[in-house]
């Protein structure tokens, strides 16, 4: 019943309009671009002209940041309708959203906010994903978050929560390896253990991005998922381990703040591509 389209197992980058000229000047060594759905919800203009052009040559991943799947209140039906219209207009190979909330009541907070992992929130999130998948007529991917606090009431480990959501709804998962690293550092847990338990067979896309390092109230490291730098070395190491287990998976470089010039961003994507190619040679051997 769901559209079975998927991203090709190569690399992509988050599209930034300032790179448009460079991108279309030559065939890029990329297979897809990802855009934030909310930036394409105007009626027309340069955003649609550019996206239409990119879609002629590359696959598209539509990545939502404002649906607020982790809200205890109802989903915004108007926003869901806008997403459906966008999916119909561009027929993206993938639609993904976050395990987070961003709206409450009438207000949109413009951040990915955390939720406790309990039977109550699990039922809520699964219900919302069912609603999204029904409305869009397609399977979606749900992304693991970066968080800075935890909830005393949480009873379910994050990986189990994601596995259960995926099991109940049939949704795929978007594995953000930087978020895994940030999450482990911020909560004193083990990134390798997290990845060992992660249901990698459900992963339809991987995200890689940079983070900033600050400290918390006790002087302990607090990593901010800021997407404003290169991917950190330990994150590359985790990514290599994941790819060794999964084989090639569609991989995105996210760089949203202090956006670099195009060659710098493309070089990051090429570094990921090299890892994917090693993996596919290994699996062919």
């Amino acid at each position: 019943m769901f559209l079975a389209s998927e991203l090709p197992a190569g690399t992509g980058v988050g599209f930034k309009p300032e790179h448009f000229r460079d991108i279309v000047a030559a065939r890029q060594p990329l297979v897809f671009f990802e855009v934030h759905a909310e930036n394409y919800m105007g009626a027309g203009g340069p955003p649609h002209a550019q996206l239409g052009k990119l879609c002629e040559d590359y696959a598209l991943s539509l990545h939502g940041v404002g649906l607020s799947i982790g809200s205890m209140g109802p989903l915004d039906r108007e926003h869901l309708a806008r997403l459906r219209a966008l999916c119909e207009r561009y027929r993206p190979e993938s639609f993904s959203e976050h395990l987070a909330w961003s709206s409450h009541g009438e207000v949109y907070y413009n951040d990915l906010l955390p939720l406790p992992y309990t039977e109550e929130t699990l039922a809520r999130v699964a219900g919302h994903i069912d609603e999204v998948q029904t409305e869009l007529g397609r399977r979606m991917l749900l992304e693991n978050p970066s968080t800075y606090v935890r909830f005393a009431e949480s009873t379910i480990p994050e990986v189990e929560f994601l596995r259960e959501v995926s099991g109940r709804t049939g949704c795929g998962l978007l594995l953000d390896v930087n978020n895994v690293f940030v999450q482990a550092k911020n909560h004193g847990t083990d990134a390798l253990g997290y990845l060992e338990n992660f249901p990698l067979d459900r992963v339809g896309e991987i995200h890689l991005g940079g983070h900033d390092e600050q400290t918390d109230d006790a002087g302990a490291p607090l990593l901010i998922d800021a997407h404003g730098t290169r991917v950190a070395d330990p994150v590359w190491a985790l990514y290599q381990q994941v790819i060794r287990r999964t084989g090639p998976v569609a991989t995105l470089i996210e760089w949203d703040n202090d956006v670099p010039d195009w060659p710098t961003l493309r070089a990051e994507a090429e570094a990921a591509q090299a890892i994917l190619e090693r993996a596919s040679r290994a699996s062919a051997a």
Partner: peptide, 8 residues
């Protein structure tokens, strides 16, 4: 634009 990143 929207972003799924935090800010430092």
């Amino acid at each position: 634009g929207t972003t799924c990143a935090g800010t430092s």
